[in-house]
Every structure is written in structure tokens, then in C-alpha cells.
């Protein structure tokens, strides 16, 4: 009887082992982006706005983040090399500039997924010449795995 109890206990342990020691971590992208939503400045309460013909790019970078897209929110990668990530937002040929000033901290995700930077938005500098009315930080932390809007961009 004791042998049988031990045998079945070992089966239980082995099954738990098979479950707990699974190496297949699900890894997200290690590139961290600030999530920005477009809002209309015409309303007293926040109303998200879908905008068409949006072009977003950064000076000195060849690739364009958004190219004539129709969007209500954008995901703009933050630079790990500099403390500021600058983007030019162009809507219907009208342009303004948004600069995200941030700090970063190296974090270990897991053995399989490696490392990421967690960013903290410090300040946002922007021009309000043609399309942007104002910009507000809603949630300053850009954390791996979180899906939270960080910035509200109010458009004229």
C-alpha cells in the first residue's frame, strides 16, 4: 500500500513538474511605445477623434511611423539612445512637432524574453501652430505588457 501511495504521489509530482517547468514564455516586443490618443479641443469633455491622412515621422529617421493613415490613437516608439523622442505630426499637410522627454530604467523580463526599458514621461514639448491645441500626460509610465493610453493630443 505504501509503495502505491508513493507511486501515485510521484506521478502527481511529475505532472506538476511538467507543468511548472515549461520554458515557452510568451514574449512581447521589447520596443516600448508611448500610446497617444487624438481628441477634439472643441468639446469640454474628452471625445476621441478619428483622423485621416495622418503622417508621423521623426527627423533623422528614414522610416515613417504612420503614412497617410486613419487613426484615433498612435503608438510612437521611444528612443533608448536619447532622453527625448521627437515626432512631426502631419495631418492634411498641416504640421506640428511633439517631443517626449523621458527617463528610462533597464528591467529584466524573464530568462526567455530578456530585457526591456521601462520609460517614464517627464515632459512633453510641442508646437501649436497648425493642428495641435494642447498635449497632456495622462499616464506617464510606459511599462512592458501594459496597454494604457499615456498621452492625450488635443487637435483644433
Amino acid at each position: 500500500m505504501r509503495i502505491r501511495i508513493l507511486f501515485f504521489s510521484l506521478i502527481f509530482i511529475a505532472v506538476v513538474y511538467a507543468c511548472t517547468s515549461d520554458d515557452s514564455d510568451f514574449c512581447l516586443s521589447n520596443q516600448q511605445s508611448v500610446q497617444s490618443g487624438f481628441y477634439s479641443s472643441s468639446y469640454s469633455t474628452d471625445r476621441d477623434t478619428t483622423v485621416s491622412d495622418v503622417v508621423i515621422y521623426s527627423t533623422g529617421i528614414d522610416s515613417i511611423t504612420y503614412d497617410t493613415a486613419t487613426v484615433s490613437k498612435t503608438f510612437l516608439p521611444l528612443s533608448m539612445h536619447n532622453d527625448t523622442s521627437e515626432y512631426i505630426i502631419e495631418i492634411n499637410k498641416l504640421k506640428d512637432t511633439v517631443s517626449f522627454v523621458h527617463t528610462k530604467e533597464l528591467n529584466f523580463v524573464s530568462g526567455e524574453c530578456g530585457f526591456i526599458f521601462t520609460f517614464e514621461l517627464d515632459t512633453i514639448l510641442y508646437s501649436d501652430n497648425q493642428i495641435i491645441d494642447s498635449v497632456a500626460i495622462d499616464y506617464p509610465s510606459i511599462v512592458y505588457g501594459e496597454n494604457i493610453e499615456n498621452v492625450k493630443i488635443y487637435l483644433y
Binding site: S29, N30, Q31, S58, I61, S63, T65, P77, L78, S79, M80, H81, S85, L106, G114, F115, I116, F117
Partner: peptide, 9 residues
Amino acid sequence: ITIEDGYWG
């Protein structure tokens, strides 16, 4: 440690 970033490098 390499953190991949397709936009900024």
C-alpha cells in the same frame, strides 16, 4: 544585452 528596436535602432 541587445534590445531590439526597429525604429530608433
